[in-house]
Design a protein around this nucleic acid. Structure first.
Lengths: 199, 199
DNA sequence: GTCTATAGTTCGATAGAC
DNA sequence: GTCTATCGAACTATAGAC
């Protein structure tokens, strides 16, 4: 048997999820219509129901699950590949994150989740925590144990890093600023590690 | 003539804008329906068209304009009231910002703006820059000129501070973390000023 | 200033041909 | 796997009574 035939979950289905991911992550659940997704794919709206028989909500859930799984794997990979030194690990993480679909987690938790169901917000928060925050918190805690950095609730630091990613991407896409993405990452990590104060 | 009669632009109109602001800022343009706003006010949906004859889009634009104007005034006031020292000024700014409606500027620029018109994104970016970024950038530049901090593109630092505000509010409202809002602000400013590295 | 009633539009979803 | 056609629901907006 061929390898590809055994592994693949149908190519066109992946393409549907790709299109849905791009739009859902960028504009949010309510802003994106099934017609938007279909138009991006160059098919009719009804064709989406072959791939997602339970409709828009199923599509969103699968997009989120796949996205979070990919984030966790990607983060763990780049962290493992970097030297055990906070600066290198954070740089690797930030460089990986800016290459991914922009994910506005606050919007997902505060707005998107409310369109799915009451309990989905909690489930989503668990996924976000597990996939995106946990790997970074592990890195910060390890650096604390190595004595590289002072003790401090790692949530605060990780929140700062994740929050600023979307600004980097926005500055980059809107050309509202003349600094390159790599320079911004470098500056941000410089601030987080050593602060801005002259000494 | 009475003072209040001369100044007020109708009380009920303000209440409409308050309700619209609360919902638009929290969930975004597409997620909020005219019925949601009317329900929050305890009136019927059609009643909103007395206050905003041009409908939902007008309501959103006026909410944004009023919000940005209030932000700019508030920021300038707390900055002016604080000593000319970066730590005090940033603390005052952060404490003010966490008391305001959560504003997801990235969502506004990337998602909400697309429902209004092509050109509104640029207009919105100008408002955000003028009202929220500019006052903070001024503070950072002044600290640089006083020699308090090293030179660095102020956009990066200001972006970090604005980005992390929503995480503070989210952590606070979801009780996902056991640190108080004031402690988080203190820690964040500590990180930005002095970094996390032991020395 | 707010109401009821409703027109017009858009959306999510289903049925059935190919 | 994708299409056309269409239904019912939800939404924005308007008309006119009070």
């Amino acid at each position: 048997m061929t390898v590809s035939a055994a592994v693949k979950t149908s190519d066109s289905r992946e393409r549907v999820l790709d299109a849905a991911e791009k739009l859902f992550m960028e504009r949010g659940y309510a802003s994106v219509t099934m017609r938007d997704i279909a138009n991006l794919l160059g098919v009719r709206q009804a064709a989406l129901y072959y791939h997602a028989p339970q409709g828009k909500e199923q599509l969103f859930r699968e997009v989120v699950d796949r996205f979070m799984q990919r984030q966790q794997q990607g983060l763990e990979d780049v962290i493992a590949a970097a030297p055990s030194h906070l600066e290198h690990q954070l740089t690797a993480v930030m460089r990986w994150l800016v290459t991914q679909s922009p994910v506005d987690m606050i919007r997902m938790l505060r707005s998107d989740a409310s369109h799915i169901s009451e309990s989905y917000a909690a489930e989503l928060l668990r996924k976000v925590d597990q996939s995106m925050m946990r790997p970074l918190i592990t890195v910060v805690l390890a650096a604390q144990e190595r004595g590289e950095i002072r003790p401090l609730d790692p949530h605060v630091m990780v929140g700062m890093l994740l929050a600023v990613i979307n600004w980097i991407k926005y500055f980059d896409s809107s050309q509202a600023i003349s600094v390159s993405t790599d320079d911004m990452i470098h500056d941000i990590i410089g601030v987080v590690l050593h602060g801005v104060v002259n000494r």
